[in-house]
Design a binder for these strands. Structure first.
Lengths: 335, 335
DNA sequence: TTGAAAGCGGTACCAA
DNA sequence: TTGGTACCGCTTTCAA
């Protein structure tokens, strides 16, 4: 593989000049420039990012740390982050923690060694302490879908609590009297907020019962099991708010396998609006998070930090939107 | 951030010695070693992979090029590749081509600049020519789910044609008389093979009709539209073999929206056995590809090439397995 | 407008 | 067992 020296020799100039034309900075005579360009082409020269990073002290690479790449929510984030990053000339290295704190820690170590320019975190296992450490070492960080009160990190999320309230209110509006909640892991911020939103509305309507909250681990299987548990305890349940779409889908599946139908016997609403939710049968009502928009802004702020622009390290919550679909439809005969 | 020189000074040794203890190679006195280790800890020193790569001429990084990260098939591959790579001390940088040849080419350029040690390709847009070029430049390549006859590349896939035949035969066994095929893009190897498998079996049973093959672009939406088209042309269709699970799901959805039910009115079978297929309702019968196993072996062979071990650059096809589920069940009254 | 040369942070060879 | 040092391929002053 040709090096900058090969190019400089062939073009009959110094490496400094070659560097200037590659980076389009500094003065360089038009004629000189052309002969360099020709030499580059002739040698099929591709500058080594490795060497560039070492000399220039930046890698043009960021990392995206996710909890679980098999959960469709994360590929959606990943797709957004990557699309936006590439526009700015950045590559992203995707790290899948598999919800495993050790694997995550290992990744963080590797990322530091790789001297990435910044890190975007969409992982539930990460602790505030680790984020603080990253920042102390001068690595820009932005966090998605989490909150660390009292910590100075930029955090982007949606209005989880409000969304949850909207979801539950929607079930009530559709005629549900006994509403269960399949929650995410309650040590996860978003899951907790959604559970609180559920509590608030059920309380206000005097239909709150602690036993109606069952954890479902944010997965299809978890949602499946949670629904069965819920139904065993409360056979008269007629509405379910699932803490995310995946669990909503699991719940519908469990109902189906129990010969109960959605929305006829029980209405179900999820959260997130992943692609799958409108493909499922019945189509899953949900609370839409602006995933792409959030991710895009998150990247934007990460870049700002990387470029040493002053920004306020705080948290923003995006608006959510109720998407009523078939899974919460009020049927004729009920009306 | 501390450098190797900082460590050497604090420990009172030379950088060479520090390098030796970091890399656990060469002789180093136990006492010296400990003082180095202490210095490393005291300074929170993390060796720069950048500098290491530049000096050592290897990056310990491979790339995985996929067609579409939003298609669950690819996160599954990605998960497998990444899990296995990390075990060997390799990081993987995930590149999502979005089925866009230009974006893909851009990525390949970036990857060359990054001097990655090898590249794993699971992309439908890539051309044999590009692979040849990579190889000529000395970059190890392994390809998943494609075939390039006449080209010297290691290619891993499953028995697509055979699997397709099994799928169609299964539909026939379940009593289907008129079987349509929703195909993937026919310029994609796997899609073509599956279509051929379909043709072979339908021909043998004298139920082959060219019009019964409709393309569905390997996506849910495409499958949805393809089914509608198929049904409009052939209202008496009673079985559908979808070229992948996603299209199978789209087809079932389309049927459902047309008030036709699976498996009662029409039976549907897919291909791949993505996670979702057994969650969908009805559960989708499918042909299982050993995705994890294939990916694992693909990585294994990529590493062999990276380590300059001699291997035969050829193609292997893995066995597939019929997974009959609800979507092709023969109902009582039909029996 | 161009070039010489000093790094960037490691590795590895050769001497000691 | 250790240390000195010449690279790896590029960027970036500083001088010319």
């Amino acid at each position: 593989m040709a090096t900058i020296r090969d190019v400089s020799k062939l073009a009959g100039v110094s490496v400094a000049t070659v560097s200037r034309v590659i980076n389009k900075n500094g003065y360089v005579n038009e004629t000189t420039k052309n002969s360099v360009l020709n030499a580059i082409k002739a040698l099929n020269y591709k500058p080594s990012s490795i060497a560039r990073s070492l000399a220039g002290m930046k890698t043009s690479t960021i990392a995206l740390l996710v909890s679980d790449i098999l959960n469709p929510f994360f590929p959606e984030i990943s797709h957004a982050i990557e699309s936006e990053a590439i526009k700015q000339g950045y590559s992203v290295i995707l790290c899948n923690s598999d919800n495993n704190a050790e694997k995550e820690a290992e990744y963080i170590k590797i990322l530091k060694e790789k001297r990435i320019d910044g890190i975007m975190i969409a992982s539930y296992t990460i602790q505030a302490e680790q984020i603080k450490k990253l920042q102390e070492e001068g690595i820009p960080v932005v966090v998605l879908d989490r909150e660390f009160p009292g910590h100075n990190v930029l955090t982007l999320m949606c209005k989880n609590r409000e969304g949850a309230s909207m979801a539950v209110q929607h079930l009530i509006d559709q005629g549900c009297k006994k509403i269960g909640h399949i929650s995410g892991p309650l040590d996860v911020y978003a899951a907790r907020e959604r559970a609180i939103g559920y509590e608030e509305v059920t309380n206000k309507n005097n239909i709150y019962t602690p036993g109606l909250i069952v954890p479902g681990g944010f997965s299809i299987d978890g949602g499946y099991r949670a629904l069965l548990e819920l139904y065993a305890k409360y056979p008269d349940i007629d509405g379910v708010f699932a803490g995310n779409d995946l669990m909503g889908i699991g719940a519908i599946k469990a109902l189906y396998d129990s010969n109960l139908y959605v929305p006829k016997n029980i209405k179900v609403i999820g959260f997130d609006d992943i692609d799958l939710s409108k493909t499922f049968m019945p189509e899953l009502s949900t609370i839409k998070q602006p995933i792409y928009e959030m991710s895009k802004m998150a990247l934007h702020y990460l870049m700002k930090q990387i470029n040493n622009e002053d920004i306020v390290l705080t948290s923003y919550a995006y608006e959510v939107e109720l998407l009523p679909r078939e899974s919460t439809k009020k049927l004729e005969k009920e009306a």
